[in-house]
């Protein structure tokens, strides 16, 4: 299935929420190109452990990142039930391996609470706030912050 990014005029924004382990995260829908099932990736030498390799996305070579490992959590053991969120990060397109997409949320800035003070530097770098939805806590993350190294390495 493909979620097309929409332009929202009412001041709110749409977020895609997904699960990694027992935690929920969300990203701005505007940066999401499509969501697809897991396919085995071709491993690349001398890359960080969260870099699972590359897959063929309609002729383009797409790097697949284990988001759980990238966020410092347990590495994912991908199965056919896992999904890849294809996202645009600056001028690159990357695939993010997550457990499942859970929701599409329409929120306004008022719904987003500041990141709690307990986080360490790493979490503060990518977390843009938290949302309380029906008793769940969903962390809004900024992909640019997570993949700042993509740019610096490429440069």
């Amino acid at each position: 299935m493909t979620y097309l990014a929409k332009n929202l005029t009412n001041g709110g924004r749409e977020l895609i929420a997904f699960r990694i382990g027992d935690q929920e995260f969300c990203v701005n829908i505007m940066s999401v190109r499509e969501i697809r099932g897991w396919t085995p990736a071709t491993a690349m030498p001398h890359t960080p452990s969260y870099m699972l390799g590359v897959i063929n996305l309609r002729g383009a070579v797409l790097p697949i990142i284990d988001l759980s490992a990238r966020l410092g959590m347990r590495p994912t053991e991908p199965t056919v039930r896992h999904v890849i969120i294809v996202a645009q990060v600056r001028d690159k397109v990357v695939g993010l391996l997550v457990e499942a997409v859970s929701d599409i949320l329409t929120v306004t800035d008022d719904n987003i609470q500041p990141t709690p003070d307990i986080s360490n530097d790493f979490e503060r770098a990518y977390a843009r706030g938290v949302l309380a939805i029906e008793g769940r806590m969903i962390c809004l993350i900024e992909l640019e912050a997570i993949f700042s190294h993509l740019e610096s390495e490429a440069a």
Partner: peptide, 9 residues
């Protein structure tokens, strides 16, 4: 590979 990632040694 550089289009979406970086150079891989």
């Amino acid at each position: 590979l550089e289009a979406n990632y970086t150079h891989v040694p």
